[in-house]
Design a protein around this nucleic acid. Structure first.
Lengths: 315, 315
DNA sequence: TTGTAGGCGTTATCAG
DNA sequence: CTGATAACGCCTACAA
């Protein structure tokens, strides 16, 4: 590996001069700078990021925490983060927490051990974790005091879900709630329930953890007594759609189903799924930008990105 | 941050002794070792991985190259890698290459700059890239001379696709080929075509890049003249299923469709998709294990994991 | 404008 | 068995 030392020898100056010429911080005569740059190019010199990270006690690695990268929502978020990271000469380390606080704090520790530049977390327990570290942190799709966050407009999304179903004529609605620890899911159901109530629509709620009840034999009345079903995300909607088909309940004629997320697959299921489109990629991309601002000492105000209804055949 | 120096001061020995007591390499009296360990626990000491990586010129980070994490095949692979990595006290950095050789070599450079312990690559151009580096490398879902690789049994998978369709009575088959640069896709089509021919089945092939031709208006004869369609992956199959539905062609009655991968979603599409199941998670997990073996100087023979038919309603 | 020297936190090589 | 001491590659006062 060619080091700064090799360059120094090659050009005939000291390593300090080379370093200055390379980083641009500090003085170096135009002549020297030019020769250093030329030599760097010629010898294909690349700075060792480990050494740099040790010296400055700040690496160009950012840690990203997600519950499970296998959840189809996250790859796009991560892609957004990664694209923006590479554009800014940073790398991303992924951590899957599985909603496990222990795993999560273990990762936080790891990020510290690696002098990470900052952390983007899409897990809900961050706040509770012993997070005494002062590393820059951005919360994604989750809000909490003390930390800047970025999320889509969940309240609006929830309202849109309800409004659309109402407009389509649904008047007995089942609201399936998402994981309760997530503020994003809570906001959505607040939005939908509020809308349902102001319009005087009959509704029931079902906790996410009781979802299977919908599909057990002999429980079909639970599904048949509604003409509208609001799902906390698209994957749940797929399951609902399947359950309805098994019961031969027509969608959207007998029941209208709406999802949330607008995953790519939602165009492929049948009937194709009406849903709420979130700017998932941008969520990740902006999260990274916020993190850089934060790390640079600039203000990084929390963001709320807009959402929109995506109409398809299930309603 | 509490360092080895703090521990040394706390226990009253030198940093060298602390290091030896901690790593277990080298001598340290039981008494001293015990006191060091106790102090480490008490002060919550965690070794700085950056410093360690610089000193040993080998970090515990592995680089993982995929075309695009957004492709639903990869998150599971990555999860397999990451789970096994964390179990072995390693971290993973993801790189999306988009089939771009430049991006790829840039990442390889980055991995080198970070003293990465090794690389797992699921991209096809690695072989061509200026890969003069001697870092341990495992090829995933791709084979090439000179490097150990791990893949599923694509030849068998391709045969299974054809055999199943034949058994279901298809005798005019369309074979949609996958991306040609991938050895895995080529192996599959070799397997299916070989099987088709030995059974004397009529067939045509369609290049992946010409896939859209299937769905343009006025071209429906292309779809209607077959009673079996073999897809290179599940996502392609979803599109085919959609195209057939638009043309009101009944699946599986008029045409049988088979995919490849067994993504989670394949159970949700309608009709649910018959496909070839690959041990995707295990592919990633084993790749990491191989990498560790390789890095430890142990032999890491290439692996071929088994595949199996997953029967559902589309056939 | 440039060079010397110290340090980032760890590990490894020596003497003692 | 233990303790100085020198790396690892880079950055940055500070001195020249």
């Amino acid at each position: 590996m060619v080091t700064i030392k090799d360059l120094a020898k090659e050009v005939g100056v000291s390593v300090a001069t080379v370093s200055r010429a390379l980083t641009g911080s500090g003085y170096a005569s135009p002549d020297v700078r030019h020769r250093v740059l030329e030599a760097a190019e010629r010898l294909d010199y690349k700075p060792n990021e480990v050494a740099r990270a040790l010296n400055t006690s700040r690496s160009n690695v950012v840690g990203v925490l997600v519950p499970d990268i296998t959840n189809p929502y996250f790859p796009k978020v991560i892609r957004g983060i990664e694209d923006e990271a590479i554009r800014n000469d940073h790398r991303v380390i992924i951590g899957n927490t599985d909603h496990d606080v222990d795993k999560e704090s273990k990762y936080l520790e790891i990020f510290r051990q690696n002098n990470c530049a900052g952390i983007i977390s899409a897990t809900w327990s961050v706040g509770r974790t012993a997070y005494s570290d002062s590393r820059p942190l951005i919360l994604l799709d989750r809000v909490a005091e003390d930390f800047p966050s970025i999320e889509a407009d969940n309240l609006k999304g929830g309202r849109l879900q309800a409004m659309h179903l109402i407009e389509q004529g649904a008047d007995k609605v089942l609201v399936i709630k998402g994981h309760e620890e997530y503020s994003s899911f809570n906001d959505r159901s607040v939005g939908t329930i509020e809308t349902l109530e102001t319009h005087g629509i009959e509704y029931e709620t079902l906790k996410y953890m009781h979802l299977e009840r919908l599909f057990v034999d002999g429980n079909s009345d639970l599904l048949t007594k509604f003409n509208g079903i609001i799902c906390p995300n698209d994957v749940t909607a797929y399951k609902v759609l399947n359950g309805l088909r098994a019961l031969d309940i027509a969608v959207p004629d007998a029941v209208k189903v709406i999802g949330y997320d607008n995953l790519d697959f939602s165009a492929y299921v049948h009937p194709s799924l009406t849903t709420i489109g979130q700017p998932i990629y941008e969520l990740g991309r902006n999260a990274f930008r916020m993190l850089m601002d934060l790390a640079a000492g600039k203000p990084a105000p929390s963001q709320v990105l807009d959402v929109a209804l995506v109409r398809r055949q299930s309603t």
